[in-house]
Amino acid sequence: GLLRIVDYKTGSDKTDFSNMDNLFNPETDHRRKAILQLMFYCNAYAGKIKYDGAIMPQIYSFKTLSTTGLRPLSYQKEDFTDYRAVNHLFMERFRATVGEMFDPNIPFTQAVDDSACKFCGFKPICRKH
């Protein structure tokens, strides 16, 4: 009876977060990109089929599957089994982030940390290196 949105990962993505800064702050080294992605998927699915029930976002990490098994995400050190628990905060930050991206009064800035550019597909456009 539980609907899940599952993202399979080959790396060791973090499966815990304590606030929206963990998902959206571009200046942190350990941003929870996989959780942000799952929250977006939950919203997209629920919006597409007009679903208002619980959806459990979950990461299946192949790298840690044999040692940790299939564990739920953790929000503020509690099992995170329904995206709706923080969705209002998520959507507020998501809309603000997208708004900044399209605001002509906010200039484009390059990543402060060069390690963020290592595998970036936008290097030819950005021309940071």
Rank of each mutant, 00 (worst) to 15 (best):
S18F: 12
R71K: 15
I49G: 00
K33W: 05
F40Y: 14
P107F: 01
A54K: 14
C117V: 08
K123P: 03
N43F: 07
D21S: 13
I125T: 12
T15Y: 05
L36T: 10
L73P: 05
H88F: 07
E92M: 06
L36P: 03
K63C: 03
R93N: 15
M91W: 07
M39W: 11
D79V: 00
E78K: 15
D79R: 02
A96G: 00
P26I: 10
T67A: 06
T64H: 09
N25D: 14
D82Y: 08
V6Q: 08
V98R: 01
T15L: 01
A111S: 14
F80H: 10
F40P: 02
I55M: 07
A111P: 01
S115R: 15
N87H: 14
R84F: 03
L2M: 13
Q58V: 12
M101C: 06
T81V: 13
E27I: 02
V112L: 03
H129A: 11
D79E: 11
D16R: 08
G11S: 13
C42Q: 08
T67W: 00
H129Y: 12
Y75R: 05
L36K: 15
F119L: 15
T68W: 02
G47H: 09
L3S: 11
Y41S: 09
R95Y: 11
Q76M: 15
N105C: 08
A54H: 05
L65E: 07
C126I: 03
A116S: 07
S18M: 12
Y83Q: 03
P57K: 09
P26Q: 05
T68H: 04
H88S: 15
